[in-house]
């Protein structure tokens, strides 16, 4: 039996500084057979291991069809991520995964899509947006909504501008604090909800970010008549094993790492928003 906790060596192919605190590591498994066998779905995550320091769960940003490289966009905030931030091309780390359940992409086909992200929550959904954009004809109207605290935190501007050019696609961006030449909305992301274009009978909403923000989105969508089955959230908790053993991501009767991180709202509505869980 293979040890489910054992990482595989990966090489940093490129390190990109996205913002003062955000960076992307582009990785490739050093063993080509491991790299070739590796498959993931948007919304899943990997455990990245920094030698001598520890592991941290990071969502995969790449598109599953990008077979060459695995992208992880990380905020430098804790012991491991600060260390990962110091890596350069050529450095080696450990990677194991992918873990968890990703976004309901099959369910979403032929439907209108609303993707809402807040703060630094954009990373877990960028892969889903990429996925949809590359298969644009399979989906209805697409709304991409992103809220950030400070305009500085807004990364991947080119991608959003590019997505905006796609047919039947709406991109709405808001920053609580703007800056000179900020072309988007200044204020809360929720101010923009009236501009969303979707048919509530055939919409699917995917969201990621602070739970307070997701609560607001859920309330808004419910008021619009969107059902709980059509609301999907990516949740975050402390995760150490990623296979449902260590207990840190316990969320009622769920393990976020294994039963999530993407959940249908219906399945977590009893506990969602209750402080302390």
């Amino acid at each position: 039996m293979t040890n489910p906790y054992l990482p595989y060596e990966a090489e940093v192919i490129e390190r990109i500084q996205e913002s003062p605190t955000l960076f992307t590591l582009r990785l490739r498994f050093t063993d080509p057979s491991v790299h070739d066998a590796y498959r993931f779905a948007p919304g899943q995550f990997n455990m990245l291991y920094l030698y001598g320091v520890g592991e941290v769960p990071i969502s995969i940003v790449s598109d599953p069809i990008d077979e060459q490289i695995l992208d992880h966009t990380i905020r430098s905030v804790g012991r491991v991520t600060r260390g990962l931030s110091d890596l350069q091309a050529g450095d080696r780390i450990g990677v194991r995964g992918p873990y968890g359940r990703g976004w309901p992409l099959t369910v979403a086909e032929q439907r209108d899509v609303v993707v809402v992200t807040g703060g630094l929550g954009c990373a877990p959904v960028v892969s889903v947006i990429n996925y949809i954009m590359r298969r644009r004809e399979r989906f209805g109207t697409v709304n991409i909504v992103q809220g950030v605290k400070h305009a500085d935190d807004f990364i991947w501007r080119e991608r959003y501008e590019q997505w905006q050019q796609a047919p039947d696609t709406k991109v709405l961006i808001a920053a609580d604090l703007g800056m000179p030449l900020w072309p988007w909305h200044v204020g809360h992301v929720t101010d923009l909800f009236d501009e969303l274009q979707f048919d509530r009978e055939r919409v699917i909403v995917m969201m990621c970010g602070p739970e307070g923000m997701m609560r607001v989105v859920v309330n808004h969508m419910q008021a619009q008549g969107v059902g709980d089955d059509d609301l999907w959230l990516s949740m975050e908790r402390n995760m150490q094993c990623a296979v449902g053993h260590c207990g840190h991501c316990q969320y009622g009767d769920k393990f976020i790492c294994k039963d999530g991180p993407v959940f249908c709202y219906r399945d977590i509505r009893n506990l969602f928003g209750v402080k302390g869980f």
Partner: peptide, 29 residues
């Protein structure tokens, strides 16, 4: 069943053990 994982690097810098220990939901961490 809760347990925490941590790394224990060897003093000579050539290896590091990834160790798990019982943890408790009553801790801050």
């Amino acid at each position: 069943f809760c347990h925490a994982e941590q790394d224990r690097p060897a003093l000579d810098g050539t290896s590091s053990d990834h160790v798990r220990q019982w943890d408790s939901c009553f801790t801050q961490g």
